[in-house]
Amino acid sequence: MQTIITGKAYVLGDNIDTDQIIPAQYLSYNPSDPEERKYFGMYANSGVPEAEAGLPYGNIPFVEPGRFKSEYQIVVAGKNFGCGSSREHAPLALAEAGIQCVIAEFYARIFYRNSVNGGYLLPLESVIRMVEKTNTGDELEVHVLDGYVLNKTRNIKFEIKPLGDVLPIIEAGGVFEYAAKSGMLK
């Protein structure tokens, strides 16, 4: 597990549901096919209404048209990130686009679980809301185990909550690896 993550922030609001993260029309791609899987990166966050895409400015594409990777590595969001459907394509799409961690106030549980069990990205929770204090494009440095995020652009430090129960699963790399380590899988 990477314990220090650095990169540019892409800022979103509250209740970003899985249809905004990866609209249903793209779910016909098969994530198990390496060629098709790339398209989830291309369309990640494409369902977010333009005005709310890349706060506080809006109208900032998460992935430039025709590209498979985002220029952002970290998503900062508000409450209930990843609510809605159970589609694992959501954390997968963000990971395919190059996102290493999301920092939200809290998550919808299936998105959180999929992120952890599938080993796609780190779902981190901020102690205070970061959305209004972070601009899209700010350079962040996330110290996962030490529990803080440094906004290097604005020189602000935010606390993040410990990963707790799920840390061993994240450290193992996902639920399969965790179960194998703990002797559940032969």
Binding site: S85, E88, I110, R113, N114, N117, G118, V175, L185
Partner: peptide, 18 residues
Amino acid sequence: TGVGNTDAAFTLGTGKTW
């Protein structure tokens, strides 16, 4: 309850989940 692909694959093989 609803689960993602990884959880479902795990259950497919083991009959279990956490």
